[in-house]
Design a protein around this nucleic acid. Structure first.
Lengths: 132, 132
DNA sequence: ATCCATGCAAAGCCTTTGCACCCGA
DNA sequence: TCGGGTGCAAAGGCTTTGCATGGAT
């Protein structure tokens, strides 16, 4: 467990992290709850939410604040972008390297202290295209 | 009213659109409700939500699906980016021209049919910086 | 006259929280 | 030991929806 800080590593936290890293579906809390429950049947949804919050604050995972109403999480803590299907709301990783330079576009143009950026591509996934 | 389609233009819809265009605060439904209510005291929150949905679907306004939990709306229908304060959650327009080229980064790399993209810069606003 | 839009209120969805007990370091 | 973590369930915030009425074209 490559946690950079002094988080207490409970079984629940460990399994949540493992399951999140095992999937590539960028699950919301509910989907992850279902997965984790197969291994820890007595875990509660509240624990899922609390840990997703703590783990993302700690940099072990990412909260993908994408357009949808649902909060999604990504087991990959490295900066990268996403593509979201406008029809089925699926989220996949964008096959592009991160562009740290884009933040320089704001140099001298804003009084905000810029600390990051996010890019989200929108489109229709292959499956939804086929359904037309 | 420069509506491109055959939307029925009710007084409520008109006032919502006007108030949204008058502010630069990228308000959520609640804030807009408060503003509109000064002119139409009997309007309901449901009407605000329904109209924001219809107007954004029609291209008259934009739904800014930013990171926060709150849906925000922008009276400016032209493509542009935003900066969000991580501390107070304020959203302002980013002083950068849109970069339609970024979508070409995905050419031949995904099976999604890309229709758009969004960039959101994250940082701390001047006011919040001063409070440190 | 039609059919979309509105007001009102209830329901819904997702997320957060209080509390007593538990457990990892 | 002891302070953070957990399970459970209730509460919360924001958004959507059903229904009868109202209004724009």
């Amino acid at each position: 467990m490559e946690t950079q800080s002094n988080l207490r590593m409970t079984r629940q936290r460990q399994v949540i992290l493992e399951e999140l890293r095992r999937t590539c579906s960028h699950p919301g809390a509910d989907e992850l709850y279902a997965r984790v429950r197969k291994r820890l049947p007595r875990i509660s949804l509240g624990t899922i939410y609390r840990n997703l919050e703590v783990l993302s604050a700690n940099g072990d995972i990412q909260k993908i604040e994408t357009g949808g109403s649902l909060k999604r999480f990504d087991g990959n803590p490295e900066p990268h972008y996403h593509i979201r299907c406008l029809r089925c709301h699926k989220v996949v990783d964008a096959p592009v390297a991160a562009l740290p330079e884009v933040e320089r576009l704001l140099d001298g143009k804003t009084d905000f202290a810029i600390t990051g950026h996010r890019i989200e591509f929108l489109g229709i996934c292959p499956k939804c295209q086929a359904e037309d």
